[in-house]
Simulated assay, not measured.
Amino acid sequence: MKKILLALTAVAAMTGSASAADLAARPYVKAPVAAPVANWTGFYIFGGGGGGLSNSDQHVQTTVGAIPLTIDQRQGGSGWFGTVGLGYDWQFNSTWVAGVFADGQFGSIRATVQDPLLFGGITGNQKLEDSWAAGVRLGWLVAPNVLSYVNGGYSGAHFGSTNFLTLAGVPAGVHINGYNRNGWFVGGGVENSLNFFGISSPGWFMKTEYRSAFYDRKTSDILTDGGNLPIGQSIRANSWNQTISTSLVYRFNWTGPVVAKY
């Protein structure tokens, strides 16, 4: 009897060892790597272009004769421009970004200038030739790589000279010299990464921006061509310019979020 029990015990021990040996080894699973959070802090540069509208409230006055004559009117125009600039952003929590920037614009946004009192009416075009802006912006991250923002600041502009024509379309022999004016602007836009449709372009972004700029009034004497002599007529005008631009942006520190690896 004892021999039978010893034999059964030995068989059971051998069977248990064989079963343990047949078990598959536990697979090794690598811990997931957390995706880095996109950080908007750092320098960037940009360049692009767009179109704009110009509006001007004009006060025309003549000092010729015993009784001065005046006319108030609003004129407008449109055109295109290019822009380049740079800036620096700070991301101060997971959803807010603040920054400073400066840019320059160059192109041809034209506005009509008229004097109905002289020679039965004269008209000309004044061109916003170039401008600059320096300001701040505050944005909210719609997504880790999409920023919606508002901005504002100071601006300066150079307006070119105006050569007048009569209503018949011939040179009137008079003009207004170009001048510089200062003002301020407000605006806003959206900036987003160009990583889409499976294309990887780290650091490259696109922004679309609306801007409204207001420039101080300027009184300009109407002068004779050649001699630059005042003829007793002047035009006082301000300028309100609205622009929409699209720019390509490069952010120097951008790595952006990546897909977690396992």
Rank of each mutant, 00 (worst) to 15 (best):
G51H: 03
L147D: 11
F159E: 12
A31W: 11
Y154P: 01
A143W: 06
V64R: 13
S54Q: 13
G51W: 11
G107Y: 08
A133L: 11
D72V: 12
G107V: 03
T123Q: 08
G52P: 07
Y44F: 08
D89M: 12
L118P: 00
N55R: 15
G153N: 04
A34W: 12
A35R: 00
V113G: 00
T63H: 12
T162V: 07
T123G: 08
D130I: 10
F159H: 02
G139A: 06
L128A: 01
R137A: 02
G87Q: 08
Y44C: 04
Y88Q: 05
E129Y: 04
Q114N: 14
P68M: 09
G47E: 14
G152N: 06
V113W: 04
I109M: 06
A66I: 10
F119A: 10
N145H: 06
V33W: 13
N39E: 15
G156T: 07
G152V: 01
K127R: 14
L147Y: 09
I122Q: 02
A111F: 14
K30Y: 15
G65M: 11
V60I: 13
R137H: 15
N55A: 15
Y149S: 07
I109E: 05
W40T: 04
G160M: 05
F159G: 05
V97G: 00
N151R: 12
G153S: 03
L53A: 09
L53H: 05
Q126Y: 04
G77H: 01
S94T: 15
L138E: 04
G153D: 08
Y154R: 08
G87S: 02
S78I: 05
I109A: 01
A24Y: 06
R110P: 05
Y88L: 00
V150D: 12
T41A: 02
F43D: 05
G153L: 06
G51Y: 13
A98F: 14
I71D: 15
D130L: 14
Q126L: 13
P68C: 01
L138T: 07
V142I: 11
N145K: 05
A134K: 01
S161Y: 03
V37Y: 13
I122T: 03
D72W: 12
H59V: 15
F92T: 14
V113D: 03
N93D: 15
A133K: 01
A134I: 09
S78R: 01
V29Q: 11
G153T: 03
W80I: 10
H158T: 10
Q91G: 09
N163C: 10
Y88R: 01
P116M: 13
R74P: 03
G139C: 07
Y88M: 01
W132L: 06
G65I: 09
T63G: 12
W140C: 09
I71M: 15
G135N: 00
S155W: 00
Y28W: 12
I122F: 07
V97K: 07
A134Q: 08
V64W: 14
G121N: 08
A35T: 03
F43R: 03
V64E: 08
G124R: 07
T70S: 11
G65Q: 06
R110W: 15
G77L: 02
R26M: 13
R74N: 15
P116F: 00
E129Q: 12
